[in-house]
Nucleic acid binder design. Structure first.
Lengths: 115, 115
DNA sequence: TTGATATTCCTATGATTATTGAAATGAAGC
DNA sequence: GCTTCATTTCAATAATCATAGGAATATCAA
């Protein structure tokens, strides 16, 4: 992950519809959702969701695979992880006590206490 | 953290200079850096760094405190953590094995293996 | 107060981006 | 081959944002 990639990804996430889409796909899991289902769930037009999905795919936040008539979009978990890692890189050099709460408890990571 | 806040934060991070600044401040730790030092390190003009620092402060990614003649900017670790949590929210509902790598190993979080 | 330093405000300009609807493409079933 | 369905492309418009330089403000030292 380099700076330009990260800027592109953050830019993709800095738009209400796209952020909503990514969060939906993150919840949807690896099986993903069809473009039409995304459009309906997000409440936007087909052409508009296509526009945004393409942008998300361009920056690497989602993947697209054709499945019969539909195109299935799924969150690119590895790239999401890379983005977070990039943002917090070297945060903890010498000071894990500061950055642990910022990274560890992202909703599912077992905290040091329970681990 | 609501959607609009998150969109604002991602928007703030979607600009090369601002992303560079945030990453510098994340590394700098809670003591932060003076605006002038940030400008020099980022290689941009004083007015430009002021513009970007203000935007970062507006969305809550950095904090500003006056210290004599200088204004010290520091990363808002709690809000950064909130942003990451918001993005990955409910990712792991039922599937921690998918989302753990995306959140746990953000550069400093002890992996389950070492914990 | 005067001078020096640090930061911010103001104004203008150029560039990028979101949105829409209609038309076009690609895939599947009859 | 024709029809239907899902998605994408195209063109035009409106809105937002980055950058620069110069003026203005605030703090400290002498």
């Amino acid at each position: 992950m380099d700076e330009k990639q990260a800027v592109g990804m953050f830019g993709a996430l800095s738009q209400e519809t796209r952020l909503k889409i990514v969060r939906m796909l993150v919840v949807a899991g690896p099986q993903g959702m069809a473009a039409g289902a995304v459009a309906e769930a997000a409440g936007v037009s087909a052409s508009n969701v296509s526009f945004h999905l393409k942008e998300l795919e361009r920056v690497g936040l989602v993947t697209a695979t054709r499945e019969s008539r539909s195109i299935i979009y799924a969150a690119a978990y590895d790239h999401l992880a890379g983005l977070i890692r990039f943002l917090m890189e070297d945060c903890c050099a010498g000071r894990p006590e500061i950055c642990l709460p910022a990274t560890a408890d992202a909703g599912c990571c077992p905290s040091p206490a329970e681990a």
